[in-house]
């Protein structure tokens, strides 16, 4: 079942086209990744789907409702905005309870969510006293408190250090296990690859590719790479038909076959060569191939 269906959605800010006729759908129960660098139109898309902005043209159905039926949609979705921070001086429980009450939810609902997010024991702590990762969990709890069918998480791990980021990932995975559909925007390629069932890559308001990460890797012919420090003897050892690239200090040996890549790495190891690295094809390679650059930690193209 399609939870979100988007058709030729366009949004301009003056002369700037923020999103340019995008179309996609999101299936029930999946984590859908919306991956792109800063300024690519991610937040604009999310905010249109959350009924916070109006598109200039195009249509979208959320849970079967048109965007004009904002109140019906709002009742059924959960939202964690970008750079979300709750009321600093309210406790965890008070913050969650504030949103819960607006949805006519009871204290039991609040308790259930706090327990689900492992926040029950620290419910009396003020938001400002919490660590970054815990604060995000509170934000997610605030997004979940109305028991939504669909949850929008806009850059949920931005600014967190990698370890904390992983704890947030496990929370998001739990949402899928609980049967929620998650729409996740991110500029972390790894995050999209690890978490998402399907990923849309967006750049300058246009969707460049949509698929599950594995198929995407296959589809774009991304190869396994064996990286090794340069040595004149190496080319003689490598017999198989592989792509052989000379870098400044390294050779990059590329193949589509995983076994072949492993075999090459093994042979190099056995022959005593140093600095050997076997890299599986990843979404990052897809991204690099599609866009021609990487995304930095800060979300810019590099």
């Amino acid at each position: 079942m399609k939870i979100i269906e988007v058709n030729s959605l366009t949004k301009r800010y003056g002369n700037v086209v923020a999103i340019d006729g995008i179309s996609f759908y999101v299936e029930q129960g999946e984590i859908f990744g919306y991956l792109g660098p800063n300024g690519s139109g991610k937040t604009t898309t999310v905010e249109i789907l959350e009924c916070l902005r109006k598109p200039d043209s195009g249509k979208a159905f959320i849970l079967g409702f048109e965007l004009s039926e904002a109140n019906e949609i709002k009742k059924r979705i959960g939202v964690m905005p970008q750079n979300f921070a709750a009321f600093d001086l309210l406790t965890v429980e008070e913050n969650v309870s504030f949103i819960a009450k607006v949805y006519n939810k009871t204290n039991d609902d609040v308790k259930r969510i706090l327990e689900l997010m492992d926040l029950w024991d620290i419910r009396k702590r003020k938001y400002e006293e919490l660590s970054g990762g815990t604060q995000r969990r509170v934000g997610i709890a605030m997004a979940l408190v109305n028991d939504p069918e669909l949850v929008f998480l806009d850059e949920p791990t931005v600014g967190l250090d990698p370890e904390i980021r992983r704890t947030v990932w496990s929370v998001i995975t739990r949402l899928r296990d609980a049967g929620k559909t998650v729409f996740l925007t991110t500029h972390y390629i790894e995050e999209a690859e690890r978490l998402c069932d399907r990923v849309a890559i967006i750049l300058r308001g246009k969707i460049m590719a949509i698929d599950d990460p594995k198929s995407m890797v296959n589809k774009y012919g991304i190869k396994y790479v064996v990286k090794v420090r340069k040595d004149p003897k190496i080319p003689k050892i490598i017999e198989d038909e592989v792509e052989f690239i000379e870098d400044k200090d390294y050779y990059l040996i590329k193949t589509e076959n995983r076994l072949k890549a492993r075999k090459i790495a093994y042979e190099l190891e056995v022959n005593g060569f140093e600095d050997i690295e076997l890299k599986s094809p990843s979404l990052e390679d897809v991204f690099l191939k599609l866009i021609g650059s990487k995304i930095t930690e800060a979300g810019e193209l590099a």
């Binding site: 916070l52 109140n71 709002k74 979705i77 939202v79 921070a85 949103i99």
Partner: peptide
Amino acid sequence: RRGIFKRVVATP
């Protein structure tokens, strides 16, 4: 700035 406002707007 903190997004609470957006969170609230996204409620009914």
